[in-house]
């Protein structure tokens, strides 16, 4: 095979770093596995959706160095959850805002919990 060297930025180096860089990445990862185990989607469906989200982000200027991988993962998760009729964008937004309200009223350093009054 005759190959042409393509001038692309170098491959980021990686020591044996932590598996997840932030807790939310771990939660997002686990949700996809749990939903797959429950049969909400097949793994090929998941990979196709994730691949499409990565392409979309790249087209929108994401450098795609691997650091933003779990952002694509979360986008794919939200998309599949909506496509499968589990929660539409409006529902996701309502819970998002409720959590934001819960954070606002929770003193710093205290665990944040969602209460019915957070849904305004």
């Amino acid at each position: 095979m005759d190959r042409q060297t393509i001038p692309v930025p170098g491959i980021p180096c990686d020591a044996e770093g932590p598996v997840f860089r932030e807790p939310w990445e771990a939660q997002a990862f686990a949700m996809a596995l749990a939903l797959h185990a429950r049969g909400l989607f097949t793994w090929p469906e998941w990979a196709a959706t994730l691949g499409a989200e990565i392409k979309r982000a790249q087209a929108a200027g994401d450098p795609d160095t691997g650091e933003t991988y779990y952002r694509h993962w979360l986008n794919a998760l939200e998309r599949l959850v909506a496509e499968k009729g589990v929660a539409d964008a409006a529902t996701l937004a309502r819970y998002h805002d409720a959590w934001d309200h819960a954070a606002d009223r929770t003193p710093h350093g205290t665990p944040i919990e969602l209460r019915p009054e957070d849904f305004r």
Partner: peptide, 26 residues
């Protein structure tokens, strides 16, 4: 005096709460 959750954290919590309430995840 309140706490702060990032945009991403809010989205992840929203998703997890909905999926838990609907019985999709534990």
């Amino acid at each position: 005096h309140g706490s702060e959750l990032s945009e991403t954290q809010l989205r992840v919590r929203a998703l997890e709460t909905i999926l838990t309430e609907k019985g999709y995840v534990d």
